[in-house]
């Protein structure tokens, strides 16, 4: 068999595309202040931003799982009037510029917002410019990723397994927890990872809704942006750290699935 060459019209843009995606990362590695890296990494501001980022992204992912998986199930398994509209609404945060999302969140959860005012007067809870606000901003932006992945997995899973469970005496909730969820577990995990990665990188909605308070709402992306204005090397160090941590976590999760699947 003769090896077939890819046509140049496809090969050239494909290689350019790869370079376009990889070169910025190479640039980051190239410009990194390797000699002073250890002491820079231990600066207190960096670690607290990293901790805050990991914490809020993880909580946001949990929030998305608790709310998003049932919503995906509803979209995939229950036919109700307006389902197509609901599906379109769910994906709005995907196409909405995050800053606009942040403004919208302020209008609803802000001190004078639709729900925020009531939360403030009734429970004394204020969400904007708090760590909880960071979680809300991240969840708002990241949830569509989870819903789309889980809904796709549910549509791909054979609903007749659920019928088989019913004939064995399982009600809808038991069927969901004992049959449906295990069947779509890989899809849920993939959705959760996408969701987590998106939450970790969230910038626009966070800075609009939660502000930029070190130790409280200043996540890694915000810290990178801030550092860029004063200290390029600090920005590089922060970026590198964010890159390494997210790649490491994603890679370890990926290995876990492949070995268990």
């Amino acid at each position: 068999m003769r090896r077939r060459r890819a046509p140049l019209a496809l090969a050239v843009p494909a290689v350019l595309g790869l370079l376009f995606l990889v070169l910025p990362l190479v640039g980051l590695l190239y410009r990194a202040p390797w000699s002073t890296l250890p002491e820079r990494l231990t600066e207190p501001g960096i670690l607290s931003a990293l901790r805050l980022s990991l914490l809020t992204a993880t909580i946001a992912t949990l929030v998305c799982l608790v709310l998003g998986v049932p919503l995906a199930w509803l979209l995939a398994r229950v036919s109700f009037p307006g389902r197509r509209l609901v599906r379109a609404l769910v994906t709005v945060p995907l196409v909405l510029p995050p800053v606009v999302g942040g403004v919208a969140l302020l209008l609803v959860f802000g001190r004078r917002g639709l729900i925020g005012e009531w939360l403030d007067s009734t429970f004394g809870i204020t969400l904007p410019f708090t760590t909880a606000g960071v979680v809300i901003a991240e969840a708002f932006v990241a949830m569509p990723f989870l819903i789309i992945a889980v809904e796709g997995a549910l549509r791909g899973a054979d609903a007749r397994y659920e019928e088989a469970a019913a004939t064995l005496g399982a009600g809808r909730w038991t069927t969901f927890t004992h049959v449906t969820l295990p069947l779509v577990a890989p899809g849920v995990a993939a959705g959760a990872v996408l969701c987590w990665a998106r939450a970790l990188g969230e910038f626009g909605a966070t800075i609009t809704f939660a502000g930029n308070f070190p130790g409280k709402t200043q996540t890694m992306p915000l810290a990178v942006y801030l550092a860029l204005e004063t200290d390029l090397e600090a920005a590089i160090v922060l970026s590198l750290l964010l890159l390494i941590v997210s790649v490491a976590i994603l890679a370890s999760l990926r290995d876990k699935w492949i070995s268990s699947a």
Binding site: R160, E163, T167, G171, V179, L183
Partner: peptide, 20 residues
């Protein structure tokens, strides 16, 4: 009566054994 409350057992054509 919903399927889960009928005293009826089913062997499906392609069995539908839960893969997990």
């Amino acid at each position: 009566t919903p399927p889960e409350r009928r005293p009826i057992g089913v062997v499906f054509q392609d069995y539908l054994l839960f893969p997990h």
